[in-house]
Design a binder for these strands. Structure first.
Lengths: 216, 216
DNA sequence: CACATAATCAAACGCAGATTAGATTATTTT
DNA sequence: AAAATAATCTAATCTGCGTTTGATTATGTG
């Protein structure tokens, strides 16, 4: 019928949080706009006031995700700590972040593929549509770039440590992928009420990988 | 129009392989029966001669996946090798298997969630439908059981090694999840034509985790 | 050979989901 | 307080997909 009073109206951010949550359970394609809307007590139609379409909503969720982990890791990577300490802190921050925001973590793992298959826009597209499409493509690219940069940060510390001789001579690429795979998986199995806290888990994982890097 | 000559007709297995491939690229929900059919030069309707419905097809892909890795790992786990050797071989077999069958590996990682949300069958279901549904549920359960057993195998070796003092005192649950996360992720990034072979990657990963387990 | 069975296709059904249109009311700005 | 803008709803549109039906032809078997 009408608009709700201000304190009850939902923000873009409310929607993002709720959407991540629904996505975690059902996955992008199986999630309907109605599902997301219901999670914030709106109708599907109302979501289009906040996001251009379903893809834009997904992109926004993923942007929030990469910002979350990126903002944690980047300062550490930029510091002048010795490689071992730096890597330890990066691992802890990454894993801890994923345990604190499992929904977003899961989205980053499972839904990126949904962003990849970019459907071509139809010939009947209006100028406004074309502009929106170009915009979307740009932001999408930027997302992938930032994601690659994120991986580079880990790669970089490891390379440094190897070159300085404080880490053993691992294959940097493989070791990085191994670590990041283990991290990402945390978002899949971690449960907030489980036996161990996020801190404990992060600590153990950091410990495992640093031991693995110790020179003979 | 008609049936094709025998040598050109597709088998259930052909469909499974093709389906895993399409699934890897698009994910279950985004994959249409038409997509899968096209991959084996059939029409969507023809697939229903081989599989009751889309869910059954997914389940069949996942069953093939768990059989693939299970059949490799189980004999090793059942052998009486000392823990360190046993674990090394298990890791190598698992990782190597995933590099050799990336499509199935990816399905095991990404599509299991699609199996979880089991929609209730409508009240209008025929007896045949009900039987099929019960059948499906049973097989689905069996799949999950076998998958859990698979994880237990890794957990078991690690526990043994810790108890015997040949591994350091890690938290068995966390270490297992860490390892399996790293393994699963291989199916995401591995490319057959890449810099390193599956064997080399498997070897390096096994080495990393075994080093990490070395007692002080 | 005749009959059953296996494998395929074209066409159509039904439905669910993304998106749009248009109306209505709250809030903010001028 | 009038005008602009923001947030929401209901109702409709449109498209695509899973699935069913029924016909058609190949293959195997008695």
């Amino acid at each position: 019928m009408a608009r709700k009073p201000a304190e009850l109206s939902v923000s873009r951010d409310d929607i993002l949080v709720a959407a991540a949550d629904v996505l975690q359970r059902n996955g992008y394609e199986a999630t309907t706009m109605k599902d997301i809307a219901a999670a914030v007590n709106l109708t599907a139609a109302s979501l289009y006031h906040h996001f251009r379409n379903k893809d834009a909503l997904l992109l926004a969720v993923l942007e929030a995700g990469i910002a979350l982990v990126g903002n944690q890791i980047e300062p550490i990577a930029a510091s002048d700590l010795p490689p071992a300490d730096k890597l330890r802190q990066m691992i802890r921050a990454h894993v801890l972040g994923l345990t604190q925001h499992t929904a977003i973590g899961a989205a980053m793992v499972f839904e990126i593929r949904s962003l990849m298959g970019l459907k071509p826009l139809p010939d009947t597209a209006s100028d406004a549509d074309r502009k929106a499409y170009a915009d979307f493509s740009t932001r999408r690219e930027a997302f992938f770039v930032r994601r690659d940069r994120f991986e580079q940060l880990f790669r970089q510390v490891i390379r440094e440590g190897v070159e300085m001789g404080v880490f053993r001579g691992v294959d940097v690429g493989i070791f990085t992928k191994t670590m990041l795979g283990a991290h990402n998986w945390v978002g899949v199995w971690y449960r907030p009420m489980g036996r161990l806290s996020g801190e404990e888990i992060a600590e153990m994982m950091a410990d495992s990988f640093l031991r693995s890097l110790k020179p003979e």
